[in-house]
Amino acid sequence: MGKLDGKVACITGGTRSIGRAMAEAFIAEGAKVVVNGRNAEKGAECLAEMGAGDNADFYAGDAAKQDAVEGLIDFTIERYGQLDICCLNSGGVLNTAPVAQMSDEEWQLEIDWNLNHVFWGMRRALQHMIPRESGRVIVTSSVEGKLGKPGIPGYSATKHAVNGLVKAAAQEVGTLGITVNAILPGLIETDIVRDTGPDSAVAMGLDGYDALIEMFSAESAIKRPNKVEEVGAVALFLASDAARNMTGNMFPVDGGTMPY
């Protein structure tokens, strides 16, 4: 018997990195999973690599777009008949900059990608979960949801906002068998970090990508980047019955970076 037998999950940004680790952890414990990403080819590769057969599917869409996020929820319910676990995991930056140089386009992208995507997905998922009086909403926030760093003001602001949304939603549905929690990863060398990290390092006043990795690692107790599997393990716990009384919480997976 798996910990998630009979459960159905969906994951935004689920074809690689943190979302992929969540998907693999859930499938290994008996869940059916729909992963989301923008690229259909990468989605097909992900499904083939996971080898879960009919227990996994892919939904193409940009998590910064409302119709894609709501479409993922609807597709999952149509595909598997229910939704038990909603992981709102996608997020990041494209061309971050200090406040004085931040473009309107980047600011809006980060709000849509990091905050609105979570709201759209949470709202749609809860509308399904509330009548059933059962469900798990798991949001990938960040240590920057409690800390601020120069050069990534939009990311920090939206992740702070996500944490507040999680706390408020948890209070709204706490008596209905639904939990709402956030995971706050520290630095992980995901594909997005590798793609945008060099420019982010410049915006943060650092001497290149390696200096960015060194700075985040030095702030932790473990002195290394975190791993996607470590986040996946916490997501699995929060999705399981063992975490049924844990809600409205921020769970750091940051190697001892968080000061509180």
Rank of each mutant, 00 (worst) to 15 (best):
I130E: 11
N245Y: 15
D74I: 09
G51Y: 05
S103Y: 02
A25S: 10
H117N: 12
V69N: 09
V166Y: 02
L72R: 01
Y155C: 06
A63I: 06
Q66S: 06
L88M: 09
I183F: 02
L94F: 13
H160L: 04
V139F: 02
K7T: 05
S220W: 11
V234C: 08
E24M: 08
S217D: 02
A161R: 02
E24A: 12
G135I: 01
Q127L: 12
L147C: 10
A52K: 08
Q66W: 03
I77L: 07
I178G: 00
E219D: 11
G208R: 02
E214K: 15
G186N: 01
E110D: 13
Y260E: 13
L94R: 15
Y260S: 13
I111W: 09
N249Q: 11
G14H: 00
T140I: 12
A25L: 01
E49F: 04
D254N: 08
G151F: 08
D254P: 02
M250L: 14
K227Q: 13
G30C: 04
W113Y: 12
Y80A: 07
Q171N: 14
G53M: 12
E229F: 08
G71C: 06
Y80M: 08
K146W: 06
N249D: 12
N226T: 15
H160D: 05
G197M: 03
N245L: 14
M22Y: 15
V202I: 14
F26Q: 05
A44H: 08
W107V: 08
R194G: 06
A60P: 08
N95K: 14
E229W: 09
M122E: 10
L126Q: 00
M122V: 14
S200I: 15
T175E: 09
D74F: 03
G43D: 02
L126C: 03
G174M: 07
A221M: 13
N249H: 14
I222Q: 10
Q127W: 02
G30M: 03
R79I: 14
I188Y: 00
V228H: 00
I188H: 02
Q82A: 15
P225V: 13
G14E: 04
A239L: 01
S156D: 09
R79W: 12
R244E: 13
G121Q: 03
F251P: 07
D67F: 05
L165N: 09
V137E: 00
A233S: 15
H128K: 13
T175K: 07
E144W: 09
V180A: 11
A23E: 00
L126T: 03
A9K: 06
K223E: 15
A52I: 10
E70H: 05
T175I: 03
W113T: 11
E229I: 09
Y59G: 04
